[in-house]
């Protein structure tokens, strides 16, 4: 019966992560630190794309209108929401108190077993691919951002000024690179500009995704109520009839699923 509450919380957590990382990103760019700015831009894009992924997975699941097992149907919704907030690659359940990391084998580090019947395995590329399906070019843009956020050539471009080139009398071309001064502009390959434009046009749709997500709430509530009424109504007799109904409708149990 917590599924509807978790539905609301999943959105709040996803948005809070976007806000925190996004604020950091913006202030790094404004402070004239494009390398840390791009690193956080990549992270912001990852956090924002989780919402697209969540919408696509919910949409596909809610398209099943006549589930064979109403409880399994709600459990799957639960899993989709839980992955968006608590998804992991590292095996936290087993290692949360580990202090000897040197001896942790790969098999012990990786999260593979389900937790309480829920599969919480997640990697960010799933979300990036979902965003790419909605905004073509998003994955390429993400990979370009990675090239600038990792200690690769892109990161080197971001820490130097616009290079000065000249050809000497022998016809040899010289390129003078200098570590960046605090200028608000950075010289980068055209593909970087293209990546920023893709990110821009994709993030313009962020509010639509939030609306889309909110739009699934009535159907999630309906699925929870169906599961409660078909399989769990007897348990409702244990509750005070004037307490809020556990389905999350906001009505009192007596006038909601218990009725």
């Amino acid at each position: 019966g917590n599924t509807t509450t978790e539905f609301d919380q999943a959105l709040a957590f996803a948005l809070a992560r976007v806000v925190e990382v996004g604020e950091g990103c913006s202030s790094e760019f404004r402070a004239g630190r494009p390398l840390s700015g791009v690193t956080l831009l990549r992270a912001t894009v990852e956090h924002a794309s989780v919402l697209v992924h969540l919408c696509r997975k919910l949409s596909a699941h809610l398209a099943i209108t006549k589930p064979a097992n109403s409880v399994a149907y709600v459990t799957k919704i639960e899993e989709i929401l839980a992955v968006a907030v608590f998804g992991t690659r590292f095996n936290w359940p087993q290692n949360i108190n580990s202090d000897d990391l040197a001896t942790l084998e790969r098999k012990e580090r990786e999260y593979t077993k389900d937790e309480n019947g829920l599969n919480l395995r997640a990697q960010v590329m799933d979300a990036i691919d979902s965003a790419d399906a909605e905004c073509p070019g998003f994955r390429a843009a993400y990979e370009i951002l990675c090239e600038f956020a990792h200690p690769n050539i892109g990161a080197t471009w971001l820490v130097n000024d616009v290079p000065v080139q000249h050809v000497d009398s022998m016809g040899i071309q010289w390129i003078a690179r200098r570590l960046r001064s605090q200028s608000p502009d950075v010289a980068v390959p055209h593909a970087f500009g293209a990546a920023v434009r893709v990110v821009d046009s994709c993030l313009l749709r962020f509010r639509d995704w939030v609306e889309q997500y909110r739009g699934y709430r009535p159907r999630v509530l309906q699925a929870v109520q169906f599961a409660v009424r078909t399989t769990g109504r007897s348990a409702l007799a244990l509750l005070n009839p004037y307490d809020p109904c556990p389905c999350g409708s906001g009505a009192k149990a007596k006038f909601c699923c218990r009725a």
């Binding site: 948005l15 990103c25 700015g37 950075v186 970087f192 500009g193 962020f206």
Partner: peptide
């Protein structure tokens, strides 16, 4: 090479943050 403006990227991200903040 192209020149990108850091404040322009910050504006893109600020808009996202404003959208997300409004929804929380």
């Amino acid at each position: 090479l192209a020149t990108i403006s850091c404040p322009a990227i910050a504006e893109i991200v600020d808009r996202l943050v404003a959208d997300a903040t409004r929804e929380i």
